[in-house]
């Protein structure tokens, strides 16, 4: 009965093939077989959400699923955040948000909070407070009272919408269009960076002539 199975997990873009017993939980495979200990085990009962990872883009609790059930899927853990393009090789805006807004004290819930925050911002880049609170409703924090976690995710949303603006800086139209790396921020808009103002205007009426965001 101690048979094992070979499964393939693509975690943070890297493919891993491991041997697991069917009873091995996904969170144990991630932490112990792949040595990615950023994903935490908090309550061990499916309540706390510290073990939240993205499975094929959706947040799930990795202690409520067997590793064999994730065979062939794409998993993202907190370790993958800094490799995302929006992190520019440093902290991801979400991680930066938790630092800037004091979104953690003991830090135990933080990896799960960040993954739930990431799932939210992928779906809804400009969430209101209620949406943020709903998105993290499956994640318990016993330190912060959640207030600063909400602010941290708001910070990230701002930062992702308008790089630098969340720091209190302003981005001029010249800067926007002079920057080769400028991304209009609209998903599936135009295939990436552009220097053309008309191109941006044409893509989404969200932007006014000066490149400002009319939604604000």
């Amino acid at each position: 009965m101690t048979e094992t199975r070979e499964i393939t997990l693509t975690v943070n873009g890297t493919e891993h093939t491991i041997e697991v017993e069917p009873r091995r939980l996904l969170v144990h495979a991630i932490r112990e077989d792949l040595d990615l200990t950023g994903t935490h085990i908090g309550c061990d009962t499916g309540n706390c959400g510290a073990c939240t990872v993205l499975k094929d883009g959706e947040p799930v609790k990795s202690c409520l699923s067997f590793a064999v059930q994730a065979d062939g899927s794409e998993i993202m853990t907190v370790e993958g955040m800094e490799d995302l393009p929006e992190a520019s090789g440093e902290l991801h805006p979400l991680q930066e948000g938790f630092r800037e807004e004091h979104g953690l004290q003991c830090g135990y819930c933080t990896p799960g909070m960040i993954m739930s925050g990431k799932a939210l911002l992928d779906e809804s880049p400009d969430p209101d407070e209620d949406e943020i609170r709903e998105a993290i409703s499956g994640n318990l924090c016993r330190c912060t009272g959640y207030q600063n976690i909400v602010k941290s995710i708001e910070y990230a949303a701002e930062e992702l919408k308008e790089p630098a603006a969340a720091d209190g800086g302003t981005v001029t139209a010249e800067q926007r269009f002079a920057d080769d790396d400028f991304d209009c921020g609209v998903e599936d808009c135009c295939g990436g960076p552009s220097t053309s103002a008309t191109h941006i205007e044409g893509a989404d009426p969200q932007f006014d002539d000066a490149g400002g965001d009319t939604d604000e």
Binding site: P59, K61, S116, S137
Partner: peptide, 9 residues
């Protein structure tokens, strides 16, 4: 029902 992660599964 429960929370977003659990509703996903």
């Amino acid at each position: 029902i429960a929370d977003p992660q659990i509703r996903n599964r």
